[in-house]
Simulated scan of single mutants.
Amino acid sequence: MKSQTSQVARSCRIREWAAMVQECRNRPNGMSVDEWCRANNITKANYYYRLAQVRKACLDSIPSDSVEHEIIPVPMELMHTESVSTAVDSNSALMDESFLDISANGMTIRVTEQTSGFLLKKVLGVLAHVE
């Protein structure tokens, strides 16, 4: 178990590192992270270590029971797809189906050649407004 002093020291370091990460993110346009690190007398490896520690501290501060997976209702009118006529020839039936998986926030959408462009546009529009 960490002592209270070491926890306070770590918290102080994390705040300092978070400010440093913010400064790096606000660096002038065209300046690379490597250049910013050299100008601020820090190695690139140390910068990324500190960045990882700040991110870990942020994730650790989120209560595990606060993360909820919500079901977002999609209006039925968005679920109607345009009719698509597809012709399958003997060669395409033998090939593996090609697809594109789009993953974000723990969700995956599989898009195939048979996916309606209308439906895909509507689903992506709904997902763009999910918080």
Rank of each mutant, 00 (worst) to 15 (best):
E113F: 12
T43R: 11
S6C: 08
V130F: 14
T108W: 09
W36K: 04
S85R: 13
S32W: 07
M1S: 13
S66T: 10
V111P: 02
V21Y: 05
K121E: 04
I14T: 05
A128Q: 13
S32R: 14
E131S: 12
Q7P: 01
V123K: 06
L100Y: 11
H129T: 05
T81I: 11
A19D: 14
P75T: 06
T86F: 05
V126G: 00
P63H: 12
D60R: 14
R13E: 08
S66R: 11
T86E: 05
N26D: 10
S116C: 08
A87M: 11
A45V: 10
V88E: 06
E77Y: 13
L120D: 01
R38N: 04
D96Y: 09
L94Q: 11
R38A: 09
H69D: 05
V111D: 02
V8I: 15
A45S: 06
E113P: 03
G117V: 05
D89Y: 13
A39R: 15
W17F: 12
S98G: 08
E70D: 06
V123Y: 10
T108L: 07
S66W: 14
E97V: 15
V126D: 07
F118W: 05
S92N: 08
E35V: 07
Y47D: 01
Q53N: 04
V8F: 10
R55E: 07
I72F: 12
M107K: 15
N26L: 06
W36D: 00
T43L: 10
M1H: 14
T86G: 03
L100R: 15
R50I: 05
Q4V: 13
Y48G: 03
E77R: 14
T5K: 15
L59V: 02
S116M: 03
D65Q: 14
F118S: 07
D96T: 10
P28S: 13
L78R: 01
A18L: 05
S6G: 02
M31K: 03
A104G: 00
T112H: 09
E131H: 04
A128N: 15
T81D: 03
G30K: 06
I102M: 11
W17N: 03
S61T: 01
R50E: 01
S64D: 06
S116T: 14
Q7W: 03
N41T: 05
V54H: 04
R55C: 00
C37S: 06
V67D: 10
R10W: 13
M20H: 12
A9H: 14
I109C: 01
H69V: 10
